[in-house]
């Protein structure tokens, strides 16, 4: 729990703007609070709505739910209640993955690509991958499937796809990209097989991405910030090894995928994956710019496509391109 705010700090904030003290419980410092106030003013002006928004923020409602969106790479992702807000760590590794695909994958092989994203939520990962790599898919095709078990997440993913791509009416004509959403629980093996037999008859999944719920219930009260704990869906937060178990026992065991990238919270999840993958798989861990373990990736050595270059780029990470 964070310490009590000093009354002197609140007084100082009130002198700058009368809404500023309302933002302090969540922002903690005046500098931070001013930044947020600026964004809120940009959205609401200085009307009664601004006061309402600041009151909401005072009750720890996430800023992204108040403003309704969160920038994610080059995209603007809509955020609604009951769906997890995309995090900067996810943004970072998705961009890295997109760059890795751009640099090594398609240039050399000139082949079609099949990407599946599990536990999509807002759909931020697949949409960013599409947006960053779309120029490569004028002749070769890219098929992206996004799976989630919550209807609200599916609706939001569709909305985000429409807002970011379908508005530009020539997207469908210019690029050979198909994007589909599916609603089912991936922990259910039968449903997964059904999905595979319906959608992926002749080709294996090239890249499987997932940002599963990875906060162990024992850490929920201790570590998780109150704004996350009170307002974001537990369905998208609480979980420990079941999704990594599912990765190994379903997706890898039935030979459905050639490579995967899974986000995670701590090293015990890495060890679990690394200990349980078959011996013909090569795995690795990436760290975010806060030097926390953030992703586990792996690829099949014996797969027809060579993924070593792609994942080497992914591991090396951040490069800035205009």
């Amino acid at each position: 729990m964070s310490p009590r705010l000093l009354p002197s700090l609140l007084r100082e904030a009130a002198l700058i703007h009368r809404c500023l003290p309302l933002l302090l419980p969540e922002c903690r410092t005046i500098e931070q609070a001013r930044q947020e106030l600026k964004w809120l003013i940009d959205e609401f002006g200085s009307s009664i709505n601004l006061q309402k928004a600041c009151l909401q923020r005072n009750r720890h409602v996430p800023l992204q739910y108040i403003l309704g969106s969160q920038p994610f790479g080059s995209l603007d992702i809509q955020c609604r209640r009951h769906v997890l807000i995309p995090r900067w760590e996810t943004e970072e590794w998705s961009l890295n993955l997109a760059n890795a695909i751009k640099e090594s994958f398609v240039k050399k092989d000139k082949k079609n690509l099949q990407i599946v994203d599990l536990c999509s939520g807002t759909g931020c990962i697949p949409l960013l991958l599409i947006n960053e790599t779309k120029k490569l898919f004028k002749n070769n095709s890219l098929q992206v499937d996004s799976i989630d078990c919550s209807q609200m997440a599916i609706n939001l993913t569709k909305l985000n796809f429409n807002l970011n791509f379908n508005k530009k009416s020539n997207f469908k004509n210019d690029y050979n990209i198909s994007f589909k959403t599916h609603k089912f629980n991936i922990l259910d093996e039968i449903k997964v097989k059904e999905f595979i037999s319906k959608n992926l008859t002749n080709q294996k999944i090239n890249i499987l991405t997932c940002n599963p719920p990875y906060i162990p219930p024992s850490e929920f009260i201790k570590d998780v910030r109150s704004s996350v704990r009170m307002y974001e869906p537990k369905l998208a937060l609480l979980g420990n090894l079941e999704f990594y178990h599912n990765l190994i026992e379903t997706w890898i065991k039935f030979d459905l995928i050639e490579s995967f990238v899974y986000e995670l919270g701590d090293l015990s999840q890495v060890t679990y994956v690394q200990q349980n993958v078959p011996s013909n798989w090569i795995t690795g861990v990436t760290y975010d710019s806060n030097s926390k373990p953030r992703c586990v990736f792996g690829y099949n050595k014996t797969a027809p496509t060579d993924y070593s270059a792609t994942y080497k780029n992914f591991l090396n990470g951040l490069s800035y391109t205009n």
């Binding site: 947020e36 997890l84 906060i215 850490e219 998780v224 704004s227 996350v228 806060n290 926390k292």
Partner: peptide, 21 residues
């Protein structure tokens, strides 16, 4: 060299929802 400042160590990922970067 580029550094991203996210307010020191502590919880990350899904546990915390940063608004600034």
């Amino acid at each position: 060299t580029e550094v991203f400042i996210h307010g020191g160590s502590g919880a990350g990922g899904q546990k915390i929802n940063k608004t600034n970067s």
